[in-house]
Design a protein around this nucleic acid. Structure first.
Length: 824
RNA sequence: GCCCGGGUGGUGGAAUGGCAGACACAAGGGACUUAAAAUCCCUCGGGGGCAACUCCGUGCCGGUUCGAGUCCGGCCCCGGGCACCA
């Protein structure tokens, strides 16, 4: 063993050994329990950043730990390789997206290997590979067959910068999730996935996800946004048209003083046609449509409306009320029309105040006083007033009674509504999966037959973005013969949202080279669900919701038995420097390359796991890295010092141990237990590492104290340190394992188990309190009974002194911990 | 506005209701060295005291308890998510 720790040499050496032996190949041993650990696969931007380093370090510890614990572990890696940066690079630098992407993949894979990560590269997948996207297309067709992929013309979110449409989930505060541009609405014919058909199951099955952070489940719950209410119709007096409305407050229906339609509501044009309201209404609608999503839906925006000259009849009391159009009613939620109840809905209240519409209170609070004028809507519980036959009822009871009344008359019904919208999956971009659909003048929409998949991306394309997909400019791609009738037809030229690619990759890993199916059911059902999934909180809704949706469809189609794809989810915090997220614009980026070059991968990994628990944000500290490096040097020197005595299997730890030996042995086994608990239970790698440091410190202390060291005791402690550290620092521990006389690779050893007998201390220090304040300490034999403890405590001079002349009210004893004397 | 997290030394962070501050970083002092680096040892929440010791201290106010960073109620601040969702 070298005298000095040289990470550069040993890391290169072991990485070579592992690569040459295909060391991280997935072990197929069905006698062992299986464990699937997965880190969210990256977009191949070209370089790893510290967030990746954190993500992969966490995953690698979990993977290696489970291998040492006797599991057969699946730990794969791949590439979410379609997406716009590749196209932007093409536009900017004239390099083909494919070339750019594959080069980046090669570079990042190399960086991952230099981190010493235990991936089974035989299972690598890249979503831009034709053998992968072939199956993405196959799944699209499966969705299509099952009626879950459909086309519709709709006002869609358009990002002018990306020149493409976005799903609702990808619009954050009215802005594009990728580039932050303000999103506008456009009417386009687009492909959608019917995720709303699964809203109820996506919501209900959140309960199954015991291993998910509460807040992620809450975010999904809010996103799905289930509400229970009543749907019923108003009749337009002049034309007899029905206006269905949805309300969660049917109990306030006697307080309705107007009906509002969304500007885009289909009835608007019909009702105003040929009237004096036609022009103003059209102008109003146009004005609303020109506004972007952000200003249109903000609560800050002032409510604006316009009467359209017709009246609606309230089915409950026959009252005639005005119909208006207004900006605060949205076409794509509920029915696109609402009943206006200013007395009991704050939005309606504000609107009514502005347009001088009547306010009719129909729900009265228990402590009602009729004298005061309402200054805000009353939205709480109460008793119904002025509500015909329902007057006097409790408002909650009235909801049920009124809905029943409607049902009996066939004029309305109970309805569950969701905030969730269908997933818009078309993208007008080149670097994505072509949608495998053909349009034929005779046969209509024709899916590409499965045996003709993949529909390959043409290589020679002009990438300039526009309202149409770049694929539309490639004649050889567009022009095709109809698979049904053989007539000339044209291909769909949009590509798929890349979130489709990443919604099923964890299935592909289980049989990555299958040429007969997206994945083999037997393999998938063996490995899935993923036992531990690790990634950033930013995917709490998008990726995780889509993946859950995919899994449910795959289950319904009989392709898998799995109901939920990710059993346990760990959401890691961000890596921060100088109080802000690392970013180029802030100039606070620390590159993993540099750190690894300077200190080695083991140090980078140890620091990032030591500096904070994984769920919290982590403040980067150059001195902290230095500290991790110092620890390895300190450990190296310790092993080097004892190395001449550590060879061979050695004599077992005998029974002739002195006090110092026993104390070291106790710390040693306490550490084994603590590290095991910290890794397996709560992923507190920081405290696991700190207890290993304490053990190292304890051996240094032992080295000073013990005149003649008990070599078997030291050897056992050092070997276990190396084993406990192996998942964190895979390179140095290989080296130290050999130096400590270990046979074979440290990563093929079994995880150590704490010896219960060694854990027990013979003596313990207990705290003596008076009225809860520590007044003395005393060393007693471990396990001493309460009466004996008390007796010893009362003999202490200091306690005698302090309790003198006082009345002892009671004494609390906690074995091996404390005695508390309560005095008056 | 609503819904989640989180507030502990100079810093990152530890603490099944039982000694607050483990471990580490920074800082200060010392040893070794011609010197420096590296390494090793000591100090390190605040106040008072020569000292033994003592008082205060986990965002704020109150409560439960022999005992509260931890449990309960109310509030303040910070971070995140959602937001005309009828």
């Amino acid at each position: 063993m070298d005298e000095r720790y040289n990470p550069r040499i040993i890391e290169e050496k072991w990485q070579k050994v592992w690569a040459e032996n295909n060391f991280h190949k997935t072990e197929i041993d069905r006698t062992k329990p299986e464990y699937y650990v997965l880190e969210m696969f990256p977009y191949p931007s070209g370089n790893l950043h510290m967030g990746h380093v954190r993500n992969y370090s966490i995953g690698d510890v979990i993977a290696r730990f489970h291998k040492m614990r006797g599991y057969s572990v699946l730990h794969p890696m791949g590439w979410d390789a379609f997406g716009m940066p590749a196209e932007n690079a093409a536009i900017k630098h004239g390099i083909h997206p494919a070339e750019w992407t594959w080069k980046n993949i090669a570079n990042m894979r190399d960086q991952q290997n230099r981190m010493g990560l235990s991936y089974d590269w035989e299972r690598e997948v890249a979503t831009c590979h034709p053998e992968y996207y072939r199956w993405t297309q196959w799944l699209f067709l499966l969705f299509y067959e099952r009626g879950l992929a459909y086309k519709k013309k709709a006002a869609v979110n358009w990002c002018p910068d990306c020149a493409t449409v976005l799903a609702n989930e990808q619009v954050i505060e009215g802005k594009c999730w990728r580039c932050d541009s303000v999103v506008i609405k456009q009417d386009l014919e687009q492909w959608f996935f019917k995720i709303t058909a699964y809203a109820d199951r996506l919501l209900a099955d959140l309960k199954e996800l015991k291993g998910w952070p509460e807040r992620v489940k809450i975010m999904q719950e809010n996103w799905i946004g289930r509400s229970e209410g009543t749907e019923f119709s108003f009749t337009v007096k002049e034309t007899g048209d029905q206006i269905p409305v949805y309300t969660t407050r049917i109990d306030t229906v006697f307080g309705v003083s107007y009906v509002v339609l969304a500007p885009e509501h289909p009835l608007v044009e019909k009702l105003t046609q040929g009237t004096a309201y036609e022009e103003p209404a059209r102008a109003f609608v146009q004005k609303m449509q020109s506004l972007n999503e952000l200003s249109r839906t903000s609560t800050e925006t002032e409510k604006e409306g316009l009467p359209i000259g017709v009246r609606a009849v309230n089915p409950f009391n026959g009252e005639e009320i005005p119909i208006l159009i207004a900006n605060y009613v949205l076409m794509d939620y509920g029915t696109g029309a609402v009943m206006g109840v200013p007395a009991h809905d704050q939005r309606d209240f504000e609107f009514a105040a502005k347009y001088k519409l009547p306010v009719k209170p129909v729900v009265q609070p228990a402590d009602a006083d009729n004298s005061s004028v309402l200054t805000a809507a009353y939205e709480d519980k109460g008793k119904l007033v002025a509500s015909g036959e329902f007057t006097g009822m409790d408002n909650e009871a009235a909801k049920a009674a009124m809905t029943k009344w409607l049902e009996a008359k066939g004029r309305g019904k109970l309805r569950v509504n969701y905030r969730l919208r269908d997933w818009l999956v078309s993208r007008q971009r080149y670097w994505g999966v072509p949608i495998p659909i053909i349009y034929c003048a005779h046969c209509g929409v024709v899916p590409v037959p499965a045996e003709q998949l993949p529909v390959l991306l043409p290589e020679k394309v002009s990438f300039a973005p526009g309202a149409k997909s770049p694929l539309a400019t490639v004649d050889e791609f567009v022009n095709v013969t109809c698979p049904v009738c053989g007539a000339a037809a044209r291909r769909e030229t949009d590509t798929m949202d890349t979130f489709i690619c990443s919604s099923w990759y964890y299935y592909r890993y289980t049989s990555p080279r299958s040429t007969t199916a997206p994945f083999e059911a037997q393999e998938a059902d063996h490995w899935l669900p993923v036992d531990q999934y690790i990634g950033g909180i930013e995917h709490a809704i998008l990726h995780l919701l889509y993946s859950r949706f995919f899994t449910k469809i795959l289950k319904d189609a009989g392709l898998t038995k799995v109901n939920e794809p990710f059993r346990n989810l760990l959401t890691q915090g961000m890596v921060i420097k100088d109080g802000a997220k690392m970013s180029k614009s802030k100039g606070n980026v620390v590159s993993p390359e540099e750190i690894i070059a300077k200190y080695g991968a083991d140090t980078a990994r140890l620091f990032i796991l030591f500096a904070a628990p994984p769920e919290r944000d982590l403040e980067w500290s150059d001195q902290g890295v230095e500290g991790a490096y110092r620890f390895f040097n300190r450990l190296w020197r310790l092993v080097h010092y004892y190395a001449p005595h550590l060879n061979g299997s050695g004599k077992p730890v005998g029974d002739k141990l002195n006090k110092t030996d026993k104390e070291l042995r106790r710390i040693h086994h306490t550490t084994v237990r603590k590290v095991t608990d910290d890794i397996s239970g709560r992923f507190n790698f920081n405290t696991a590492i700190s207890s290993i440091m304490e053990l190292v410190n304890a051996i240094y202390g032992y080295k000073e104290k013990a005149a003649t060291p008990n070599i078997p005791v030291v050897r056992a402690a050092i070997r276990d340190i190396v084993l406990l550290l192996a998942p964190f620092a895979p390179h140095i521990t290989e080296e130290l394992w050999a130096a400590a006389g270990g046979q074979g690779s440290v990563h093929r050893q079994l995880w150590p188990v704490a010896d219960e007998a060694a854990l027990k201390a013979e003596e313990v220090e207990i705290v003596v309190q008076i009225n809860g304040k520590v007044r003395d300490k005393i060393v007693v034999p471990a396990g001493l009974g309460a009466p004996q403890m008390e007796e010893q405590v009362h003999q202490l001079d200091r306690i005698k002194e302090l309790t003198e002349g006082k009345q002892i009210v009671k004494v609390i004893t906690v074995p091996d911990k404390l005695v508390n004397i309560v005095v008056k």
